[in-house]
Every structure is written in structure tokens, then in C-alpha cells.
Design a protein around this nucleic acid. Structure first.
Lengths: 264, 264
DNA sequence: GCCTAGGTCCCGTAC
DNA sequence: GTACGGGGCCTAGGC
């Protein structure tokens, strides 16, 4: 099949020399490379680390991303993000994979005495990734249906940026009595930190107006300490589920076309 | 070689049926599995996502970690952390890889119409990972050499926990005048958040003592807004480099034995 | 380039 | 189990 005609190259138990040839070819052709074998890893940059001998999977992506994966764990044990530059060479009979990041300066060296597998692939991926139920969607849901915050709440989208140097409130609006309201959204359980953040925006806005400024935390839940701090500061908690917000947005964005069909 | 005797299995362009057999065998034997091919991905859990057709690398680790990697980017586009349960089956001639996490409930479905590569590996990794230049090492460095904070500073390690319900200060001590000092460490540039955190601990401690409580932020650098807020609150910034702290700890931990040798 | 804030953050640790 | 804070966090969005 087409992928076999040069788009996929697999070497099982290659010699170090064969591996380095395949990898260099892969780098120059913008391929994704997989290397598997026993290795040690040294890292030096913002921090430092060493990793003694063990069997791992190394992934080098064409954008410079570089990851060393142990047989367990979600996270790579060592890595470089996109933009790093990878190279490969032989030293003392070992395969050395080096990934270097310019800024901040970071260097990763993987030392393989033996290689179980090298795979070199030209992958195409123009797929579209769509994520829903984010904090931003909670905000959009409240713009569509302000009573999710409280009866009579009126969002003032334009005032979102309080200063530009003092951070951004998630949403600013007015309540039914004409007080200013700062809303802080969290898509997961809100803790002390979220309340402190809210206080920061309330304080910043208070110092710029003579009107009363209220604080509202909108999240699916609050921690006990978060709630205690919230009450101590005279702020309010509003339960809001990101999944419910997503459903609301979805049905709201379908409505216009439904309305159009109804009209025709 | 030893790895070839059943510890490494590679299938190039297998049929969907061959792939599912190899993957099931791999799951039951606690192997790390790599699957490469064109796929779509659907996720539903704390959030939701869809990913349309493209060529990707899928990694299933024996601890349940599950990752879908696009040809670019450091992070997997979809994933489940360790503890999830993976399974595989055929539906409508497609290979379906499913990863399910119990708590929080999350489900990931990868749909491959075709498989370029399956690799199944029994990897052993008992290597030791050691990381240096962490925030904790900054704290330890200050315990060894308190003047890194300021002349006359005396750490009081036991008082680190301010309350237990209101978080922990990184370090509490006394200055040369007998005032209490709360120190907040950051291993990277400190911003507004770090200063707010420091204020939280200073306030909590202040409410429990009649002594004056000072706040000190120790980090390699501060943002402009962080510094402004710091000065506004009457706190102090102390430049402290995590790498320098690491070097200090390293040389200090060698000294005792040197001292002993000198003595003998 | 710096800075701010989110994340399906993950992760360890203390309670 | 919940909660809190770190992370070589990474990443996106402003300025």
C-alpha cells in the first residue's frame, strides 16, 4: 500500500550505524521518528536531571518536539517542546540522540547502547480538533442567558479588561440594583486561589469607581476553604456546570437556522 | 537477540483482524502498545472533543496511560492518565481503541479504518530519575545559608504550617530585629499570583500574632506587575537562582564527610 | 520579546 | 476520598 512506498520505514534490532542513518534521513525529510531501546538520559537547562538505564520509547516529531517515555506514566520523563532541534550521532559505539532548545537553553541527551526498533513515518494530519465545555464557553453561555448568574444580571462585555496591566476579569456586569459585578469562572471545583483571583479584580475595579463592586464565583463546586474565604469577603458563589453551558450554547447556535427553516 | 524472543512484536500494515489480535495479546501480557494509522478520535468526560481524520501515533502503556499524538506538538491531543482501562474491538471493519477512566468518568474512542503499524513491547525500566534545582532545593539552600534571604535572617522550620487549613508558607523565620518573616519561593519568574499567595500567608500569620510580619519573595526574577504589587504591600523581593541553590546544596552535602576525613 | 491565565492540566502530599 | 500547590509545566492570547 502507499504508506509502504517510502512513507513508512521500520528497522527491527538495527545496528547503531543503521539506526543513525535511518534517523538522519528521517530528520531531513521531516518525519516523525520512534526509537525504542535501553537508554540513559541526561537533561540540563532550567533544571537538571539524570535517568539511569532502562527501556524507553523516544518520539521525535518533525516540529522539534522530543519526548522520552518510560513504560508507565502519562507524562514523558524528559522532553523538549516544539522548536527544539534534534540530532543524532554515534559515540563509543552508542547511539546518542540530542535535543537542544535555544530559549530557554535546554539540552537533552539520550544514550542508547542498543536499539530494539526504529520507525520513521511521514504522517499527514489536517484533522480539526474541537473542544467543548471550556471556561470560555461558560462565559458565552452567561452572555446568552445572564440569569444563570442571577436574576437581573446584565453582562457588560466591553468592560472585561479592567486595566490590562492588572489582569483580566472573566466577566463584568451590573446587577438589578445597578451595582457592578465581577464574575470569575472556573470549570472545575474552585479553591482558595480562585477566590483570591476574584478579589484581585474586585479590588482593582473598586479603586476605579465609586460604585459598589460585588464579586461572584461561578463554578460547578467550591472547596470548603474557598467558600469560607468567599463569605468572609462578602462574595457570592453560583453553581454553574460547564457541560450544561455547552449544551446551552449548542442549542442556542442551532436555533437561528431552525428559525430560518420555520420561516421558509 | 533476547528482545526478539517474544518481547518485541511488530506488524507492518496488518489487517484490522491481525491488529486486534496482537493488541489483545499485548494488553493481557502487560505490554506497551504502539498503534499508528489514520484515525478519528472522540472524547467525552470532564469536557468533550472531536478530532477528524488524520494520521496519528497512539500509545497504550501497561498502567493504563493512553495517548494520541498528532505529528506536531508536545502534548497528546487526547489522552487518559494511568489507571484507565483500554480495550480494542472491530466494528464495521474499523479498529476501535477505547480507553475508559472510572473517576472522573472519561471515555476516549479512537477509530482506525486502517493500521500502518502495530508494535507490542515488554519494556523493563527500573532506572532512577533524579531532578535537581526545584523549589524545595531553594528552601533547603536557605536553611543551610540563611543570609541568602538577608543578613541576620533565622529560619524557624517548625513554624512552616501556619494553620493547616489556610495553606502552608514555604518558609517562616525571624529577621535581625525579631520580626516574623514569611518567605515565598518561586523557581521561575514570579508574577502577581505569587505575590497574592505570599500576602495570603502573611495575613494568616498576622492574624495569629501581635508581632510584625514581613513578606519576602525569593525568585530568579519578578514581573513588573508582581514587583508593583509587592511594593504596594510593603513586601520585599530577593533574587535567588534555583541552579545556584542546587550547587550550594551539592557542595554542602559533600562537606560533612570531608570534615570527618579531615578529623581522622 | 514579556506577561497573564487556562488546562480533560497531571502529580505528589497532607489531611 | 478531598484539597492544595508545584511543574523543566505547556499553550494560547495580549501587548
Amino acid at each position: 500500500m502507499s504508506k509502504l512506498n517510502g512513507d513508512l520505514e521500520v528497522l527491527v534490532e538495527p545496528s547503531v550505524e543503521e539506526a543513525v542513518k535511518a534517523l538522519r534521513r528521517g530528520f531531513s525529510q521531516g518525519r516523525l521518528l520512534l526509537v525504542i531501546g535501553p537508554c540513559t538520559v541526561d537533561y540540563e537547562g532550567r533544571a537538571r536531571s539524570t535517568l539511569s538505564l532502562g527501556e524507553r520509547v523516544i518520539i521525535c516529531k518533525p516540529d522539534g518536539s522530543f519526548m522520552v517515555h518510560r513504560p508507565t506514566g502519562y507524562e514523558p520523563v524528559n522532553w523538549n517542546p516544539p522548536g527544539a532541534l534534534a540530532s543524532v550521532y554515534v559515540e563509543d559505539g552508542s547511539l546518542k540522540l540530542v535535543s537542544i532548545r535555544k530559549r530557554p537553553p535546554e539540552k537533552l541527551v539520550v544514550n542508547l547502547s542498543r536499539v530494539y526498533l526504529v520507525a520513521s513515518l511521514k504522517l499527514e494530519d489536517s484533522g480539526v480538533f474541537a473542544l467543548h465545555a471550556s471556561e470560555e464557553e461558560m462565559r458565552r453561555a452567561v452572555l446568552i442567558k445572564p440569569e444563570l448568574i442571577e436574576e437581573g444580571f446584565k453582562p457588560m462585555e466591553a468592560e472585561r479588561a479592567i486595566d490590562g496591566l492588572e489582569g483580566y476579569a472573566d466577566l463584568v456586569g451590573e446587577d438589578v440594583e445597578g451595582n457592578l459585578v465581577v464574575v470569575e469562572f472556573k470549570r472545575v471545583t474552585a479553591g482558595r486561589e480562585a477566590v483570591l483571583q476574584l478579589k484581585q479584580y474586585v479590588d482593582a475595579l473598586s479603586s476605579r469607581t465609586s460604585r459598589r463592586v460585588r464579586g461572584i464565583l461561578a463554578a460547578p463546586s467550591v472547596t470548603k476553604e474557598g467558600l469560607r474565604l468567599l463569605e468572609q469577603l462578602g462574595f457570592k458563589f453560583v453553581r454553574l456546570d460547564p457541560q450544561v453551558c455547552y449544551q446551552l450554547i449548542k442549542s442556542a447556535s442551532v436555533k437561528p437556522s431552525t428559525g430560518l427553516l420555520d420561516y421558509l
